[in-house]
Design a protein around this nucleic acid. Structure first.
Lengths: 211, 211
DNA sequence: CCTGGTACCTACTGGCGAGTAAGACTACTG
DNA sequence: CAGTAGTCTTACTCGCCAGTAGGTACCAGG
């Protein structure tokens, strides 16, 4: 709405944060094309030329959003994972960190995944990059724990499949927000670690008792 | 391009098919917003007013595309699946049919999944509906084959996770088109049936020998 | 050869949204 | 109290695109 005439004078760094927050919000709700610079500036509480002065064109702004949110997420996961543990425990902690982040930053996730992946061009690059980092991480985990010498390529593709499963389960979760993060994470853990073959037999995976 | 002046006179039904094909093509490449009715009419080889006369507004046209492609896909899967078989074989045939369809109809899949899921409003409904049908199918398969009496809710959510994994693996496949459909299908089959827990031990799932 | 109906067209309107020009307000600095 | 650097604004231009008005070519049957 922003019916007030003039915005309060603020240092550039602070304004830029506000603008980015507003942009993530609007992009997540409307998508790249449908989002308008007018609306973003309105949500941010400033006028359009400020947007262009600080963050450049619409495309630059969007790319900047993706970079910022991707970094935040990867840091959250890296912090949450517990190295020097059994492979299944490592996977479990990674999944918990991932779903924890998505749960608390739904807008970030929508911008990252749903929006960025549908726009071609320079945006997909940022995403691909982030995904590769995640895939390499999982692939390394697999390779390190595999007794039978599976090919590196096989590990990579399985890791890609797992990351994809995580992505789309998060996507599904957006439409079922009543589920707690831990339950969703455990579900995926069971699916990818045990497999249906075990699950239909009644064999399930349980997290190790904590501390 | 369509530099020729006037299009050849054709019966309405044929024209409508051409228009739909062109629309799926353009929507899949550009997405709903970025696609313009001018471009669709150009690809279809006719002029814009014909579009409006036959298929209505842009939104109606898009919804019609989704319905048509969703139906085609569900029919392909239903045809491919082999009932009265062991659960793993049923799952396997379903996966093969799914990836087979996506491989031969990349444009359809992009419209269905990547585009339709990112546009809110009436479009998501069609998608949700199609997905629910798929989920119910898998859930039924699981429930019927489970020895331990898992809850119906648990089966539903695992089915949703599997469908999600299939969706996003197909999505990933779009960026790695050199892989044959069978390999991708087998990879997902191993992941969701055996699980990493088995795979790291070297236990893999093999399709039964054919005929 | 006229008469209607259906396929098809060119050429517009109206609105929305990206990006900009030109200047006005505030605050610090000497 | 200038001067100047940085913040912030109003008020545009300009192109793109959904949708339409008002036709023209072509094919039936009488």
């Amino acid at each position: 709405m922003r019916t007030e005439g003039r915005a309060k004078r603020l240092p550039r760094a602070v304004r830029e944060r506000q603008i980015m927050d507003a942009a993530v919000d609007v992009f997540s709700r409307l998508g790249f094309h449908a989002a308008s610079m007018d609306e973003i500036s309105e949500v941010a509480g400033i006028s359009k030329p400020m947007l262009y002065a600080y963050l450049g064109s619409k495309e630059e702004l969007f790319a900047t959003c993706i970079r910022r949110e991707a970094t935040r997420m990867m840091e959250a996961i890296a912090t949450g994972v517990e190295p020097d543990q059994e492979p299944d425990v490592q996977l479990w902690s990674g999944l918990r960190a991932f779903f924890g982040f998505v749960g608390e930053n739904r807008a970030s996730w929508m911008v990252l995944h749903r929006q960025a992946s549908t726009q071609g061009g320079p945006f997909a690059v940022e995403l691909t990059d982030m995904r590769s980092r995640a895939v390499s991480l999982v692939a390394a985990l697999l390779t390190q724990s595999t007794k039978a010498p599976a090919t590196k390529l096989e590990a990579e593709s399985l890791a890609a499949a797992l990351v994809g499963a995580g992505e789309s389960l998060a996507e599904w979760w957006l439409d079922h927000p009543e589920e707690p993060a831990g339950v969703v994470a455990a579900r995926l853990m069971n699916l990818v670690w045990m497999g249906f073959g075990d699950l239909v037999e009644g064999n399930v995976w349980h997290p190790p008792s904590r501390r």
